[in-house]
Amino acid sequence: MGRVVLVTGVSRGLGSRFARLVSADPGVDRVIGVDVVPPRGDMGDVRFIRADIRNPVITKVIAGEEVDTVVHLSVLASPGSAGGRSSMKELNVIGTMQLLAACQKAPGLRHLVVKSSAEVYGSSSRDPAMFREDMGPKRMPRSGFAKDAIEVEGYVRGFARRRPEVSVTMLRPATLIGPTAGSPMVQYFRLPVLPTVLGFDARLQFLHESDLLDALRHATTSGVHGTFNVAGEGVLMLSQAVRRLGKPSVSLPGFAFNSVGQMLRRSRVADFPPDQQSYLTFGRGVDTRRMRDVLGFVPAYTTEAAFEDLCRELGPGLVSPERVATVEGAVAHALGSARG
């Protein structure tokens, strides 16, 4: 008998793609998608049940459908998609609490997969170069998605203690980018002029969206217990990323950067969560040794390749590599002819 997988947050891009992907897996019998709004587009074999995970009705769904695997994907990274910060927090924290309460009551549950985020490590000047899974944040994030993710992880750990026979896989993906990803960092890179923090250059680490899907599928089917950082190989500096995009950037001192961020947020040009400033100042790196050795997953894209994919989608900027190469050729030619 195959497995019955319940996926939350299925009407969002990541959730629907994951549900379709996992329904094609031979070891999976049925996939049930849950969300508050119906998904757009074709869902294939996925059965959609309209239910709010903040509501105890989810208990009946889990029990009635004999679900043995729950994949919790509706921990949202940006307030824009949830319609405001307060409803985002409600969905993230209360939704997770209710879902876990329902899971605890489900005797048939064998496996829980939760997508958290590498943002639980925060970003500060006291950070180690690479965070391992057993490290905590050096400066506790006090707001935004990072705080939600920390709270969600706390509830998941509590659940794992109370139901030791359920294997709990928690993934902490690095900054998600890709052609269809709508994460705050992708929105940032879409800005025509990129604000950066004067005197700081953040180390960035990316995960391609297709790699996140693969990692989630791998975690769902392999059932490895534990918490894992998921990120592409290598590190890209913010200045380097800006140059690769070929877009102009403006270096602003910290306080001015803050107000520009507020302006962007208010004018709804881009989701610019307050914790993004510290990320763009200090950056963050996560150690992926456990992902390779214990989880047994290797992303197809390195950080560099994932960013290149985004660059391709955004198109060449003002200072495209072709133009620079042309200028270089012209200068070399002029010097050569001057000598001859």
Binding site: V235, M237, Q240, A241, R243, V319, V324
Partner: peptide, 18 residues
């Protein structure tokens, strides 16, 4: 000149410590 081009287009590598 090639070095300048690499710098301008960001075509260089840093290790995980930056």
């Amino acid at each position: 000149l090639a070095f300048l081009r690499r710098r301008v287009t960001g075509d260089y590598a840093v290790d995980e410590y930056g």
